[in-house]
Every structure is written in C-alpha cells, then in structure tokens.
Amino acid sequence: MIYDMTPLQWLSHVIFHPFEGYEDMRWKKAGSLKISFVIVFFLFLAQMISARYGGFAFNMRAYSDIFNVVPILVQSVAYYATWVVANWSLCTLLDGEGNMRRIAIYTAYALVPFIVCSFISTGISYFLTLDESIWTTTISTLGLAWSGVMLVFGMKACHQYSFTKTIISMILTVVGMLLILCLLVLVMSLFQQVWLFILTIYTEILYRVRS
C-alpha cells in the first residue's frame, strides 16, 4: 500500500482502520491541525444540533423557550482543550513521545465517528416513533464506542505506549482535566473578587472626587 494521501484521505484512512491507522499516520508524519480545528467546530455544532433539533417526542427540551449556549461550548471546545493540555502535561512526565500538536490532531480525528453518529441520530429521530427509539440510541452508542476505541489507539500511537499504560494514562488524564477545570473555576472567582475590589475603589474615589 502506498501511503501517499491527501489530508482528508488520511482522515478516512484513520477512521476506517482504527487499529493501525494512527501508526501509519505517525510513520508518515501526516495529520493536519487545520482539519482538527474544523472537527472541533463540528463537535460543537453536533452538540448544539442534538440539543436544539430532533423529533419532538425525542427531544422535547429543544422546543422549550430557554437556550443557553455556554454549557454546550464548555462540553465541546473546553473539554477538548483541557483534554489536550492535561494529556500533554501528564504524558511528558510519563515518557510519552507525543507533542501537543500531535495530541491535538489525534484526539480530534478520534472524535469524527461520534460527531457523525450524533448528526445521524438527530436526523433520523425526525422519522422515528418513541417505540423505535432503539435506533437512535444504538447509533449514538455505536459512535461513542467507535470514538472511544479510536481515542485509545490514537493515544497509544501518539505516545508509543503499551496498551495498559495507555489506559492508565487516559484515566489519569481525566483526573488532570478535573484538576484543571477546578483550578480554572478558582482562578475565575479570584479574578471576580479582584475586579470587584478595583470597582469598589473606583466608586469610592469617584464619590470623593464629586464631594
């Protein structure tokens, strides 16, 4: 087989060869960061569409009048970013060979089945009744499982780990993500306090100046 493919062909190669696709890609140093960012955007889009669209009986909350985009943004883009950062910071310590660029690309490529299946299950929910809801759940579960398998092998290829070490590093990455998010929340509340402090001083000065 001649591995002389365009970036998009590499993507489909990786998706349909989950076990050795990533190794091939690593060998040829292929994979595009641009495509990765497009995929992450599509992840956001998929989450948004599965929240806002779908057959009425399947997704009643899509028809309620309240919608907040922030949780969806966090669920897609923020989770992806923290995953990449946490995995990089952890695996550099655990003798991983992947650099940040590679982690970002491999993770994003692994998300494609999940995104596609989420689009499909939202789409077919327009044509199904509640009794047939097994189809939508099957498809979305299938996408999730596929993405999970791809992520494991992607990380394995990325860092050149053994299978067990990959799993352990992924679990630790999730813990790292939690830590990062926790710290972020702390920092944000701290900045809020600082901002409030500055605002109070400003108001105080303003009163003094006026009087």
Partner: peptide
C-alpha cells in the same frame, strides 16, 4: 410527547 408520538 406521548400523544404527539401517536399522531406522528
């Protein structure tokens, strides 16, 4: 949802 589903 249930009644909608029947009609659908």
């Amino acid at each position: 949802a249930e009644d909608y589903d029947r009609a659908f």
